[in-house]
Simulated assay, not measured.
Amino acid sequence: TDEEAKMWKETHKILDPDIKLTVTCVRVPVFVGHSESVNLEFDRPISPDEARALLRDAPGVMVIDKQEHDGYITPVDAAGEHAVYVSRIRKDPTVENGLSLWIVSDNLRKGAALNAVQIAQLLDETGIIKPASGYRSITV
Rank of each mutant, 00 (worst) to 15 (best):
A112E: 06
S100D: 07
G80A: 11
E125Q: 10
S47L: 04
V76T: 13
Q121N: 06
V84R: 08
G98L: 04
E68W: 10
I129K: 07
A58K: 02
L114D: 12
D65I: 04
L108D: 08
V38H: 05
E41M: 15
V26E: 15
L54N: 00
N115P: 00
K66D: 13
S37A: 13
A116V: 02
E36Y: 13
F31R: 08
P59Q: 02
L108H: 12
T94K: 11
I46H: 03
Y72K: 01
D106S: 10
Y85I: 10
V38M: 15
S37C: 05
V104E: 11
A83M: 14
V117G: 01
A116F: 10
Q118V: 04
A51K: 02
Y72W: 13
D106R: 06
V86L: 12
K66T: 06
Y72I: 00
L40G: 01
E81H: 15
A79Q: 11
L108Q: 09
D49V: 00
A116W: 01
G60I: 01
A113N: 06
D92K: 07
V26K: 14
I128S: 08
D70R: 13
T94E: 14
G33E: 09
A58H: 03
V28H: 15
A53W: 01
G60Y: 06
E68D: 10
E36H: 11
T126K: 03
I128Y: 08
G80Q: 03
F42V: 03
E41W: 10
V30G: 05
V30C: 08
Q121P: 02
R44H: 12
S87I: 09
T94G: 14
F31S: 12
W102A: 11
L55K: 01
T74E: 14
E50Q: 02
P59F: 04
N107I: 04
S47K: 06
P59I: 04
A53H: 00
T74G: 13
H82V: 11
R27L: 08
R109W: 07
Q121S: 07
L108V: 07
E125S: 11
A51L: 09
R52H: 01
K110N: 14
D57F: 00
S37Y: 14
I103V: 15
F42E: 03
E41D: 05
V32F: 12
G33A: 10
V104H: 15
T74V: 11
P45N: 15
L101F: 12
G80T: 08
G60E: 07
G33T: 12
E68L: 12
G71L: 13
L114I: 05
R56M: 01
S37V: 07
S87V: 08
Q121Y: 01
G33W: 13
D124S: 07
E50N: 01
P75F: 07
A78Y: 15
H34L: 14
R56H: 02
L54I: 00
V63T: 06
I103M: 14
M62R: 07
I128L: 06
E68K: 13
V61L: 11
G60A: 02
S35R: 12
Q121A: 03
L114P: 04
R27S: 15
D124P: 00
E81C: 09
A116S: 14
P75G: 10
F31Q: 05
L40D: 00
R27H: 09
L108C: 06
L114N: 11
L108K: 05
L54H: 00
V117T: 08
A112V: 04
V28K: 15
V86R: 04
H34F: 12
A58N: 02
P59H: 09
P75A: 14
